[in-house]
Design a protein around this nucleic acid. Structure first.
Lengths: 358, 358
DNA sequence: TGTACTTTTGTGTACGTGCACAAAAATAGA
DNA sequence: TCTATTTTTGTGCACGTACACAAAAGTACA
């Protein structure tokens, strides 16, 4: 291991005191040009990596961070995201952070507007956004830009904004992956059912659009001529789904594969199970509790995980590092896609971050 | 965030000084029964989590850690393991560790014996073992047990030993997974080629045995009646493989799927490519450079990753925490299995531990 | 009861960093 | 040139932990 460079070392090399180095590092001003240049020169030469954990030890500042995502229930996708966020806060336990979670109803645009309006007035140092409604999110981001408050996206990003960073799956690739998987496990050219969420008139669901585009692009490029059959489906009114599904399967008894591009795949797999419809392959998204159960029972063949825990974890970690060190941050973070089967799911949730001791 | 409990707090609660609490925490002795019990009582009540990073800051001790694994080349499986180990050392940069890497030739039992003999005499605080030869490893472990030096396995474990912990894939499940994957992408009941490494007379390769058992168990349980065709293969003498492969494919032109349970799958996929043998599905193990290339080109259909970086990372992390805090450690750590396709591989290597800044 | 020794306990310092405050240097105004 | 003011610089403390050392208490023996 090479010798660690400390602030004191830099100070000695630049011929100034540690205090001056600190002022340069943190842009606190009150430094003569001469001294600043001397320090900057040394910093360029040596590879100084400040020790976050030690920094936070002596850090007096308190940060206010707001996290806004869709509402969630136990074992759901967004809960994992929040778990990851909390995990990062635990890793940097010494940093004094007040964090406020404000969730909105992702099927109710008015709920989103209300919450975002509140947020845009909120006093805070940074914001983590799990976006759903595009225009509303752009509005919020514009206000954040004006107030010079940094924000980070998780789950997906929006082109028209300028976030500090985003942590997201590459949803286009998700679509291609789903197409690849389903076509490799069903007969050549067979029909594919695609769950189509009917939303209450929103211009959003960017992720779904991207996924669907990836899905169809793959089929076209690979010259697969499977017919895609839309299965209507409502998240806002789950009581309708039984009807949607039964009318679909009444008309189509020749669907050997179904793909679901949102996290509600278990609704379909449960329907198949309850109605003893066999030999239908399923590809679904997200490691939720019901999806996990369905995967284990073999009702879902492949489950694709977006690693929301990691997205949340790295989003918060990146934010904290940025707030403390003001370092430039890499903007694009396309996260790992996890393909899970009944064999691997048990080990997927096994190893939680930071919990190695027995 | 709840208030953090510090040593000083425990001291006050137990009515002793911080020094005494420290002595109890680290089992340094020289503490009266009365004081020790008082401190232990408080510790049981409150949830004291020492801050590793701060601890290491004031830690004077220097640890000697030995890592022994098979030799490796660039981009190979074992290199990733060592990268993970180094990563953990970087995370705990303040801990003074001398670490010695001693590699042996995994195809030469004498090389292993020689290295292990050296290690058994080596002065050290702990040992990380990537095992290959069973009996030799057991011997080494017995000697470590005698000397009361803790050791941790990575990659795989050996039942007859008592390691502090192990970080490994569940190799039996790996076998089942491979069977599951291959049977779902080739025609029902079709022949499956299985690469069979011919080893120079060793009683080892525990991992391969477990994987193969999982593989055949799956086929039996799921009533798959695919015939398994062995493809001989030599890692020690790679010049023979061209001959092995060509003689195999001369006799079998009806093999729509091949599985490889070690990391050398790209040898087969390269052969297929070079000889224009098409429409053969392949399932291979381990994210090595050549396997990655083959996966991207579509020559391998699924690649299974064991996450050696994570195994190495957590092994070293666990070891350091144990050495410093003497905390009890969870022994069994079956790690996540990653299923990779051409779509997901790019994102798999993207996010390295600890490297978020641009 | 006093002395020598051992065990137990408390205190102080170091680690690397942030930050407050004091000291020193530079500048301005007379 | 002297004083007042501002800018720049250095020093010292705090954070939570490990560990060395000194102080205090306890024990043994004459």
């Amino acid at each position: 291991m090479e010798k660690k460079i400390r602030i004191k070392d830099i100070a000695k090399m630049a011929g100034v005191s540690a205090g001056t180095v600190d002022r340069v590092l943190h842009n606190r001003g009150n430094v003569s040009d001469e001294a600043r240049k001397a320090v900057e020169k040394v910093i360029e030469q040596v590879d100084y990596k400040p020790n976050m954990h030690v920094s936070s030890l002596s850090l007096k500042r308190k940060y206010k961070i707001v996290v806004t995502t869709p509402q969630f229930s136990r074992g759901a996708y967004w809960e994992s995201m929040h778990n990851g966020i909390r995990n990062a806060l635990e890793e940097y336990e010494n940093i004094k952070v007040d964090y406020y979670v404000l969730t909105y109803n992702q099927y109710d645009i008015y709920s989103c507007r209300e919450i975002f309006e509140k947020i845009s007035q909120f006093d805070m140092d940074a914001l983590i956004i799990g976006p759903t409604f595009k225009e509303e999110t752009i509005d919020l981001c514009n206000k954040m830009d004006e107030r010079e408050i940094p924000y980070i996206f998780v789950d997906s990003t929006i082109d028209e904004t300028s976030p500090l960073a985003f942590f997201s799956a590459d949803h286009y690739t998700v679509g291609r992956l789903i197409a690849h998987l389903i076509t490799s496990i069903i007969p050549k050219g067979a029909n594919i059912g695609l769950l189509q969420a009917v939303r209450t008139g929103d211009s959003s669901a960017n992720t779904t659009i991207l996924r669907k585009r990836g899905f169809t692009d793959y089929l076209t490029e690979e010259k697969k001529n499977n017919r895609i059959l839309m299965i209507p489906f409502s998240v806002a009114r789950p009581e309708d789904n039984e009807r949607h599904l039964s009318s679909f399967f009444k008309n189509h008894d020749d669907v050997p594969g179904i793909v679901v591009m949102n996290s509600r795949g278990s609704i379909v797999s449960d329907y198949l199970e309850n109605n003893s419809i066999k030999d239908v392959k399923m590809i679904c998204m997200d490691v939720t509790t019901p999806n996990t159960a369905a995967l284990k029972k073999g009702k879902i063949d492949f489950l694709i995980g977006q690693g929301p825990e990691y997205q949340g974890f790295y989003a918060m970690k990146t934010l904290l590092e940025y707030l403390i060190f003001k370092n430039p941050v890499k903007v694009e973070h396309y996260m790992q896609l996890d393909i899970l089967t009944s064999e691997t799911i048990d080990y997927y949730n096994e190893l939680k971050l930071n919990q190695l001791r027995s």
